[in-house]
Structures are given as structure tokens and as C-alpha cells.
Amino acid sequence: MSAWRPWAGSALLLFPLLIWVVSLGAGYDVIGDVDVSRASVGPSAAHWLGCDHLGRDVLWRLVTASESFVGPSLLACAVALAIGVPAGALSGWLGGRAASLTRFALTTIASLPRFVLVLLVCAAFGNSVQLIALAAGVAYAPTLAEAIYARIQSFRHRGFVLAGQAHGLRSGRILWLHLLWVNHRRLILRHCIQLFAYFLLLETTLSYIGGLDGAGSFGVAQPDPSWGNMIAFEWREPEANLWASLAPGLATALVLLGATWTGRSLVEEQA
């Protein structure tokens, strides 16, 4: 793989985090920005990406839309880490019946298609992006746990683990410091990036399908911006500003590409 991809990938991944910080600082008014006199105007110095058919600034909506997935996807990562890492590490380290039961429970969750699981949670508990994030984290945890389980189990009886025990290192320190942090932090980071990308895609999809009107919808609904509902809101409009639907689509594609490149570079350096 070319040397620039990990760098380009990381830059593309940092981009949503950056605009998230900008958006939190700026506090763009999602409701009050309507101005019909500039409906569907193209890019200009005042509105770099033009305006949508209600005359709302596309760039600001693009930036503000980061709030609907960056924070929640970090929440999803936290949930997946909190469940997946201890479950995978302990069952790999201890083995035995408790490990089999844990893996059985996690495999049961993993056997449900993730998208369906998320929709079920929405249907049962109501639609909120935090809830979707929670469900995505729980749905992803088995994948993370199983990856960690496989690695820890294969490292469990390696020479350096035995040598550490012979030196008098406590099992906890060997497991958390040497096995998880030193040897598998890249693996864990890669799974977090994958989950981040998965959540972005999930949120964009849900908001594209169901984000047009407030009641009974899925995902993030208008007037709150999301890259998914921005596309859905614009692309059928006659004489629309092309950028109003193209920009969020491009942004989604670029961030996903960044996640792929970064994740892949983490795999290759590990091998």
C-alpha cells in the first residue's frame, strides 16, 4: 500500500471531528436560517456551497450535521469497548465454562442482523440518535469481543506470558498491559474506527429513509441536519442547487474512505 494512504485516511477521519468541534462552538441556528429569497442559489462568497431550496446555508448545515453522528458514534464505541473488551479478554484468558457461556450470549446477539436490531430498538423504545448509538454499540460488541478472544486465547500460553508469570507479574498486569495495551491496541483501535464508520453509515441511511418529517421517523429528522436527510431533502427538487445534495454525499463517501484507509494501514503494520 502507498505510504500516503494512512496519512490521507487519518486526515479524512479527523475532518468530522474537526467540524464537530467547530459546530459545537458556533451554535448554528437550524430553524431560523430559512430565507426564501436565496432559495437554491449556487455557491458564492457568502455561501460557499450555496443554499438549499428553503434558502438555508448548505455549508453550515453540513458542518452542523456532524453533531448527529460524531458524538453518538463515540458513545457507540464506548459501549462496544465497555462490553467487548472485558468479555473477550477475560474469556480468552480464563477459558472454561464461564467463557463458553459469555461467548454463547454474545454470539446470540451477533446472530441478529445489526440493522434489524437497531430498527427493533427504535420501534420498541422510540427514535433517538443516542438510543441508536447505544444499540449499535451493543450490536457491535460481539464482533470486538470475538476478535479479542481469539487473540488473547492464542497469546495466553506464549513464552513471554509464562516468562512474565515466572518473573512474578500479576495476571491482571500481563493481561491488561502486555496483552491488550502493548500487543492489541491497534486491533482495538481498528475496530473502533470500523464501528465509527459503521455508525456514520447507519445514521446516514436511517436519516435518509426516515428523516424528512418529524413524527414517526427514523434517524435524525428535519429541520435538524444530517448528511442523510440533507440528501433526501434536496435530490428530488426541480432546479435545485446541485451542491445541496452532492456535498453531504461526498462528505459521507470521503469519511468512509478515510476509515477504510486508516483501518487497513493498522492491519498491515500489525502483521
Partner: peptide
């Protein structure tokens, strides 16, 4: 393990955290 008995294993490279 450690203070009383130490161990220098057969394959020293395998005994190091990679």
C-alpha cells in the same frame, strides 16, 4: 515466582513481549 525463583527460558526471544 520472582523473588525466590527466576526462570531463563529456553527460547529467550519468545520469552520477550514482541
Amino acid at each position: 515466582r520472582g523473588p525466590l525463583l527466576g526462570w531463563l527460558p529456553q527460547n529467550p526471544r519468545a520469552a520477550l513481549d514482541p
